[in-house]
């Protein structure tokens, strides 16, 4: 299972647990009378709850930070470089550096699976987003395209096939139609 459905499940499970707990707490107040009541040892419980919460956050932080895209593949050398210049409303993609003054039309991009690619992404006008979608319509990787800057996105494709590029930053009224594509071929034979 890819990351997104896992996150959805974690979210729904937690949201459900929160809702059930809230309902339970609400119903205890409906049943109670003035005499007995209230929580026993609330301060102790609060303290324990806080410690657990902080421990959980610390665990979460230390597990997830190393998986940040900035650190993945950072020690390796990419075997392919693809240049991308986004503009309203398409992506110019090329295997050679793109001259912003004479951007040209770019060419079809074909990348072998299992090889490290570096996308060097910039924009010639407003901010855009470079979102790579697999054939099932799921985002596999993304970065922003910002005028005046080049974002370097490294990725290793595993599954060969057709990948769509959709724009992931609002860039004007044809934003929803701004797209591109690339092809990932079977891994090259033994090197």
């Amino acid at each position: 299972m890819s990351l997104q459905p896992k996150l959805l499940l974690i979210f729904l499970f937690t949201a459900g647990a929160i809702a059930i707990t809230a309902w339970f707490i609400y119903s205890t107040s409906k049943l109670s009378s003035q005499e007995h009541g209230g929580m026993e040892n609330p301060l102790r419980k609060r303290f324990t709850a806080f410690i657990i919460l902080f421990a959980l956050s610390a665990v979460f932080l230390s597990i997830t930070i190393p998986k940040s895209p900035y650190f993945r593949f950072s020690g390796e050398n990419p075997s392919h470089v693809v240049f991308i210049a986004a503009k309203q409303y398409n992506f110019i993609m090329s295997n050679q550096a793109i001259d912003p003054k004479k951007p040209g039309g770019g060419e079809d991009i074909v990348i072998p699976a299992d090889e490290l690619v570096e996308f060097r992404v910039t924009s010639l006008d407003v901010n855009h987003g470079f979102g790579i979608y697999d054939s099932r319509g799921e985002i596999v990787a993304q970065t922003q395209a910002m005028p005046g800057y080049v974002n370097r996105l490294r990725w290793r494709f595993i599954t060969p096939g057709h990948y769509n590029i959709f724009c992931l930053e609002y860039c004007g009224n044809a934003h929803s139609f701004m797209r591109g594509s690339l092809t990932v071929t079977e891994a090259a034979a033994e090197k």
Partner: peptide, 27 residues
């Protein structure tokens, strides 16, 4: 409102985690 706040807050924390944001950003 408190329930909505913490459920939404939890959704926010998921997205504010960089490794998740890589696939959730601007969705």
């Amino acid at each position: 409102g408190v329930i909505g706040w913490i459920i939404g807050g939890f959704g926010a924390v998921i997205d504010a985690t960089i490794s998740n944001n890589f696939v959730l950003h601007n969705t």
